[in-house]
Amino acid sequence: MSFSTYKTPSGFLLPSIHSAPPFFTQQPNAATQVVFTEQWTRLILAYARYRRLFTVRVEDAEVSGGEWDEVLRNPRINRRLMPGQLAHILSVMVSENLAMYEPAKQTRATLLYWRLPEEWAEVLYEWQVVNTGQLNTILTFYEISEPPVPSELSGIPQSLLRSAIAVLVKGGRAQLISISDGDGVRFFPRNAK
C-alpha cells in the first residue's frame, strides 16, 4: 500500500502519513506514539494557520461536519481521530506551550498558538505602527480584532490579543488602558520607554 498526500476541499495539502490507518489510533509503542503526537501537533497547527482557526475542542473529533473534519477524519480509509487521542495530543500541545486551555481550568478546549504570543505581538505592532502610523492613539481591543479593513489580526481571540499586548507592554512599546467600553492599548515608538 502506498501513501500519498491529499488536497482537501479547502485546498489544504494533507501529508502522506494522513493516509496511514495507524496514524489515527493510539500506539502501544511509546516511541511511535511520541512521533505520531509530534506529527499530529504539526498537522493541527498547520491546518489552523491555513484556515485561521484559533480553537480546537475534543468534541471536534466526535461531531462530523465541523471545521476540523478535513484533518481529524479520513473517509478514504474510513478512519477518524478518537476524542481520547485528541485530548492527549492537546495536553501535549499545552505542555509544550503550543496551545493553552481556553477557558482555563478545563481540558476539553484549547486556544492554538499557530503563532506564539510574541509573534502576534510583532504582527500587532507592525500593523498598528508601521502600516497605520498611529502612535499614541488609543485603540480598543474590538478595533484591533474587528478592523474596518480586514487584517492579519481580524478575529483574533481576546485572550490571545491580551497576551500579545502584554509582550509589547513588557517591552515598553505599548500601554494597556482601561476605557469606558472595555480595554484599550496605546502604542509607542520602538525606542520609547
Rank of each mutant, 00 (worst) to 15 (best):
R42D: 00
G184A: 14
A31E: 12
G184C: 06
I165H: 00
A87D: 04
A104V: 07
K105Q: 05
L135T: 11
S163Q: 01
K105C: 06
D181C: 05
F23K: 11
T132P: 05
K105S: 06
N191C: 13
V58Y: 00
E67D: 12
R108K: 15
S95R: 15
S2G: 02
G66N: 05
V185M: 03
Y50M: 02
E143Q: 11
F36Q: 09
R115A: 03
R73L: 04
L176C: 03
V123R: 09
T140D: 06
S159Y: 04
T37Q: 14
A109Y: 03
P150M: 15
R79D: 07
G11M: 09
L111T: 10
E119F: 07
S163R: 00
G171N: 04
I17N: 06
P117Y: 10
Q128A: 08
S178H: 13
P189H: 00
I165T: 01
V34T: 11
T25Q: 08
S159Q: 08
E102R: 04
S151V: 03
I89H: 01
N29Q: 09
L116Q: 03
S180E: 15
S159C: 07
N191K: 15
L111M: 14
S178L: 11
I77E: 02
Q134G: 08
I17L: 14
E118C: 07
V94M: 13
F187H: 08
R49Y: 00
S178K: 15
Y125E: 00
I165V: 05
N29G: 03
